[in-house]
Structures are given as C-alpha cells and as structure tokens.
C-alpha cells in the first residue's frame, strides 16, 4: 500500500490557480524528488501537504487513511494531529534562535510529551551525531553556518518521527560550498524506513538519490518516472526544455 497518496489537489490564491489537480503516490522508504521551473507550484504542494495551506479540492491519504479532503472542513485539532505524519525542512531553516541546537530538536517532542524527557534527550543526541554536529549541541543557531543550521533543521524534523519528511529546496539558501554537507546528510537518511519528498534544483542530487522524479510545471504533474526515464529519456517537450535550461545554468 502506498504510504502517501495525493489525488487531484487544487489550490488557488485569489483568482490564480497554482495547483491544478496534482496526483502523487509514494511507497514507504522511497525518495521522491520534485523538480520544475520557478513558480510551478512545488512549494505550494509541500505547504498543502503540511497544512500550511489548505487545498480547496483533492485528497491526501497516508498509509491508506484519509487525512485531508478539500471538500470537507477540518478543525485545528485535526490539523495538529494529522500534520504529525509529516516533517518539513524549510529553505530558510527557521531554527528557533533562543534555543541551542539540542533544545531546538527536543522542544516539540518535550512539549508534546512524546516520550519521557530522558529518552527524548538521548534520541536528540543520536540525531545530532547523525547529522555530524555533536560538538555543536550546545551552540545557538547564530553560531552555526547555514549548512550546519540546515542539518539541525533536519534533525529537528526527524525527532518527531514523521512518516514522510519533506524538504523545500534545502540547499537553495546556502553558499555553494555548503550544499554538499547538507545533501550528504539527506542522502545518509535514505533507508527502508525513511520516506522523503524533496523539492530541489540540484539535478545531479535528484538523479542520484531519488527513486522517483516528478516534474511539476504550471501547477500540474507534467512528467513522472524513474530518474532514468526522466533524465535519460524525457518524453515531454516541456521537461526537455526545462532540463536543457538546467544544464545550461
């Protein structure tokens, strides 16, 4: 059974329709890379998945359970509960400046009393080690580089043990020499237990890490398939010209 199933998602801002019926399906442990030109709706799609925007139409299912239906109203309580299926890593990191690395990671699990505090602390230590920041656990965000901050943000999202971890262009705000460390961490998370959706402009990374690629153009899934199908044998004309433009850049 698919871990994530999105059907016919529509989202408008005022009169502009940004998502025009998006369908997606993902199996547990898969990595999905979403590519597409600027303004196509990739961020909006991730935001709808995380309830930061509410789609007007369409459904979202996680592990076969309907967790969102655009036709029905949804309460804040349901949103809070359902969004725990997802984790989100933002382009701008959005770490909490007044908390240390470790406190950033433990804040939500402790407030939501996910586990006893001691357990949350030891899990946080493991996560911090996993993203290679053990020596920074007690530092504040301003003392870290952008790449380090983004790695903390990844650990923070992982600490809530989401079924699906979403990344919105995790390296776009970084200096080029810092993208590598973040991409390596994301790659290291790939496992049969971690399902990930990654919006990215890093084509090399998408090709290497993704099991599935979706090309979103103008609010629709214009092409979808394996990395080989998308990169080596693109059928769609728009995809071809997008890839050509990416190669040039």
């Amino acid at each position: 059974m698919a871990i994530l199933e999105i059907k016919n998602l529509h989202k408008s801002f005022g009169k502009t329709e940004v998502l025009k019926g998006v369908d997606l399906s993902l199996e547990k442990g898969e990595v999905l890379a979403i590519i597409g030109s600027s303004g196509g709706g990739k961020t909006t799609l991730l935001r709808c998945i995380n309830y930061l925007e509410l789609a007007e139409e369409g459904t979202i299912e996680v592990k076969g359970e309907l967790i969102y239906d655009g036709e029905k109203s949804i309460t804040d309580e349901e949103i809070r509960k359902n969004r725990l299926h997802f984790g989100m890593v933002f382009q701008q990191f959005n770490l909490f400046p007044q908390y240390t690395v470790k406190e950033n990671i433990t804040l939500a699990p402790k407030l939501l009393k996910k586990y006893p505090d001691a357990e949350i602390d030891s899990t946080a230590d493991e996560l911090i080690a996993k993203v290679g920041l053990s020596d920074k656990a007690d530092n504040y965000p301003w003392q870290l580089s952008g790449g380090q901050q983004q790695r903390v943000a990844i650990a923070r999202a992982m600490a809530m043990e989401p079924d699906i971890l979403c990344f919105d262009e995790p390296t776009s705000a970084l200096d080029p020499e810092l993208t590598g460390e973040v991409l390596r961490v994301i790659k290291s998370l790939k496992s049969k237990d971690n399902t990930m959706v990654i919006v990215t402009h890093e084509m090399g990374f998408a090709k290497e890490v993704a099991d599935k690629i979706v090309f979103i153009d103008n609010g629709k899934v214009e092409a979808a398939g394996s990395p080989a199908e998308i990169f080596d044998n693109p059928k769609s004309e728009r995809l071809k010209s997008f890839l050509a433009a990416m190669l040039k850049a």
Partner: peptide
Amino acid sequence: IPQGQYEAGEVLGLSKRQ
C-alpha cells in the same frame, strides 16, 4: 517575527498557543 518561526513551530505539531 518572521512567519517562518510560526510555521516551523506549527509543522512540529505545536498549538498556536505553544
């Protein structure tokens, strides 16, 4: 306060109060 601070908290499952 940047909107991102609210959103980062909310996607972690915190209530608006928290």
